[in-house]
Design a protein around this nucleic acid. Structure first.
Lengths: 337, 337
DNA sequence: ATGAAAGCGCTAACAC
DNA sequence: GTGTTAGCGCTTTCAT
């Protein structure tokens, strides 16, 4: 009923506990037939080493566990990232603890505290807006940290991001190049780093074309599908509605698309690619990021830190890819009438 | 540089280690001002309890860690499920270890072994085709196990599945009701339980309508987007091509849609809903499952086991939802001329 | 209210 | 080759 220990195995094999330890650890210096007897006892008892106990004693190696903390595990972008990080971890014999923060600093702290209490060797986090000073003690104690998707303002650690600003600028420029001048911006909370960057890119593009921003066309703080639909409806009800819009993330794009009749009466470019984007009418033009590359880059950074790299923190910025399909290239037309 | 221990805190606070332990654990019987001194030392040193060491000694409670093993963390269905399980776990103060099996029994074993070696209290797994006898020892030692998405053939444990057969039958019946008689089946490996169930549902529907299966129209083993496109092309090249098709999972549906011109020349019903399904032309008719419900059901079962429920294993079967949009209802027409 | 000793399951450092 | 002792960081038990 209880979990067998090395002591039990030792007894069953008629050897000392230390001999069992050596066999289990695969160390040399055990005669082949004692080893065989031990292995037999192991099988008979269904023994498996308690790695927590092992790690307690053997501090040279870590726990071979890393923590991964993201906004929302269900978000396709993060899901892909998680998978690529888990692949890298598995390849190296590590396991990964995951947690969602929901963008709440409080939950982020709880999750990270639970992870560090379990002695993770490293942490890959998508930092919330909150502070991260609580990470100082574990970091001084040797826990490695890398940020992904966005930087933590009060943490100078390896960080992997995407050039959001450049990507957004490209998207909006595309719209401008197609003759649009009234281009709406629909984004999530401005406080989120990726969103303020993308908004900056929107501004960049307008400015480069000598256009001023019309505050009426800018909608921040869209947290959900429904929020996006609402914002779209309000935009279309404007006396001088936009002829095009830039959607700053996938859930907003989905909301917008859901609120529109077909064929789409307004030009759209979205940040983040979507599975069926190509099959839409018109096919959706997007700025796409590569979550797998982001994840594996972050994982490689983390593991090289865990392996002892103590060089200055690296800031890796990956580029986005602009995929021109057709939704941004439609002729200018008025939304209403 | 090193992680402070209770010993360090005790020294800094001028008390015994035991007193520190009591304060940290929030036990009664410590005078308010000694507690205050301890807490101050804790803050000063940035002390955090080592829960692995704690769990080693304190066997009454578990490790407050559960393992979650799925096919592929990047799959949207599993991603949603993971998130809902993580929410339930977080609510209860548990953390979750995750791993992808890639449907490889070997990797499944590696991942699960790594989890049990870390003394997880429970495991939620999407079992691969392989055997699971290796789970016997940890289960006897008290590790709780629940299966999700499909049963493990050699494990009698709580299992949460969806009525795949019924869902598929409904989908194919819908196609039959619209006059189709040549309906193709495109599925992943038949060995995967969900796939054989869905195929059975396909057969059920045909049989109920007095139709025989045409082996030419049945394609198993489609593992990827590309496989699905290939199968579709082969089907359309048939002398007597199908007028409709049932796609047995989301990646196949995506592949099929990607291989088709617009408007779609063939009727389609897919298993699994897709984000932009409604925006397609024609809107895609699907059988949808609720991954969040699947996940939370599994989590609740697991936690009640962890909390001591030793009743007979439960088999929960959730229903699918048929979402008739328009892709299945198109008039019968021949694929090629 | 506080502390000392023992021990959880294991490995490091020495014996033999 | 194999066994003994000590101790990782903590909690249990029993003193005081």
């Amino acid at each position: 009923m209880k979990r067998p220990t090395m002591k039990d195995v030792a007894q069953a094999a008629g050897v000392s506990l230390m001999t069992v330890s050596r066999v289990i650890a695969g160390e040399a210096g055990v005669s082949p037939d004692t080893a065989a007897r031990v292995e037999q006892a192991v099988r008979k008892l269904g023994y498996q080493r308690n790695d927590n106990a092992r790690n307690l004693r053997q501090k040279r190696l870590g726990t071979s566990t890393v923590g991964l903390v993201v906004d929302d595990l269900a978000n396709p972008f993060y899901a892909l990232m998680v998978r690529s990080i888990e692949d890298e971890a598995h390849r190296r014999g590590y396991v990964v603890l995951v947690g969602s923060t929901n963008d709440e600093p409080r939950r982020e702290r709880e999750v990270i505290a639970a992870f560090t209490a379990r002695q993770v060797d490293g942490l890959i986090i998508v930092p919330t807006i909150g502070g991260h000073q609580f990470l100082k003690p574990p970091m001084e104690a040797g826990t490695q940290v890398v940020c992904v998707d966005r930087p933590a303002r009060d943490l100078d650690v390896d960080t992997v991001t995407v050039d959001n600003r450049d990507g957004a600028r490209g998207a909006v420029t595309h719209l401008l190049d197609h003759g649009h001048t009234r281009i709406a911006y629909l984004g999530d909370r401005y406080e989120i780093w990726t969103q303020s960057e993308r908004y900056a890119g929107y501004l960049d593009a307008l400015t480069a074309h000598g256009l001023a921003v019309d505050p009426d066309l800018v909608r921040h703080g869209l947290r959900s599908h429904g929020d996006a639909q609402g914002a779209l409806a309000a935009l279309r009800a404007l006396p001088d509605p936009p002829t095009a819009l830039f959607s700053s993330n996938d859930v907003i794009t989905l909301g917008v698309l859901d609120g529109l009749e077909h064929p789409t009466p307004i030009s759209i470019v979205g940040f983040d690619d979507l599975p069926l984007a190509k099959q839409l009418d018109p096919p959706l033009t997007v700025v796409s990021q590569d979550p797998v590359a982001v994840g594996s880059t972050a994982a490689n950074l983390l593991f090289s830190r865990i392996d002892g790299d103590r060089s200055a923190p690296r800031k890796v910025v990956l580029l986005t890819r602009f995929i021109a399909r057709r939704s941004g290239a439609r002729p200018v037309q008025r939304v209403s009438d």
